[in-house]
Design a protein around this nucleic acid. Structure first.
Length: 269
DNA sequence: ACTGGATCCTGATCGC
DNA sequence: TGCGATCAGGATCCAG
């Protein structure tokens, strides 16, 4: 379940092994992902030098002179740098590099994607994306303004990537708990003051998660691609029935937008 | 324009 | 022990 912090952590881990390298081959063992992989990418991209590895929302962008490979980890995907050829189950794609290493994509549930976008045109999937939560565009009153006329639960609102990207089910729950807002409250019924606070909370939670993820990434080339956020204390996620850290009330469970949601009925209003 | 629901997939876990 | 049912989860697409 990679959320933004994991993708960012992955980006930082891959980067030093890949930037400046030439792609020698792209091996596709399983093209049936969220969207089918273009089977001509190996031919198209072999010989290309990787100029940059960036990120937009939860897409990892491998940039080359003629275009960009967009990798999404879906819910179960991971990338790692490998030097051997021992392939395990669900190793769907290898991007082989001139330094002998490969960027290997593994994704058991195949909700991820590997897409190619030629230079000059923004890919359709990137066009509709909202602001980056860690950028300067995530201005104080942004969420409050966007919420005008929106009656959907605040949790669904902040998870909508046309509003703000990178907030998944775990951090949405954590952020709302820390901000003291009930996940089912209508987005347009959150006061401006509390919405500004929520915005800052989201930024803080994501920043801390990246810091935590980064610390678990020291051996990125190894077999371990464990997410950082399981190491940090989660206040509500997955803790229904347990007591709230802050007030000791029993944490409750709700389904919002088909997503499991845990919250404190006393702290969150 | 906005909203809720179906959907893609596999693996872990649960109930019988 | 083994089986089927259920859940988890990101994001798009479709219907109302």
């Amino acid at each position: 379940m990679p959320e933004l912090p994991e993708v960012e952590t992955t980006r930082r881990g891959i980067k030093p092994h890949a930037v400046g390298q030439v792609i020698t081959e792209i091996i596709v063992r399983q093209p049936k992902l969220r969207w089918p992989i273009d089977l001509t990418i190996s031919k198209k991209l072999s010989g290309q030098t990787i100029s940059k590895i960036s990120r937009r929302a939860k897409y990892l962008l491998i940039e080359m002179p003629i275009g960009t490979l967009m990798i999404h980890l879906g819910m179960s995907g991971s990338l790692k740098i490998v030097t051997d050829q021992a392939v395990v189950k669900h190793d769907h794609v290898d991007i082989c590099l001139s330094n002998g290493k490969s960027i290997r994509f593994n994704d058991p549930r195949r909700f991820g994607s590997v897409l190619y976008s030629p230079k000059g045109e923004l890919h359709t999937l990137l066009k509709k994306l909202g602001v980056e939560p860690l950028s300067d565009d995530f201005l104080d009153d942004y969420l409050h303004q966007k919420a005008v006329g929106r009656k959907i639960p605040i949790k669904s609102f902040i998870m909508n990537n046309q509003i703000v990207v990178g907030v998944g089910n775990i951090y949405a729950q954590e952020s709302l708990f820390l901000a003291g807002i009930h996940p089912n409250r209508a987005a347009n019924k959150v006061s401006k003051k509390r919405m500004v606070n929520l915005l800052h909370t989201i930024r803080l939670v994501l920043t801390q998660a990246i810091a935590a993820g980064g610390s678990s990434l020291k051996d990125f080339t190894g077999a371990d691609g464990k997410p950082g956020y399981f190491q940090q204390a989660l206040a509500v996620y997955g803790r229904q029935g347990q007591s709230c850290d802050r007030c000791l009330a029993k944490l409750k469970h709700l389904v919002i937008g088909q997503r499991s949601t845990v919250y404190c009925p006393s702290c969150q209003r």
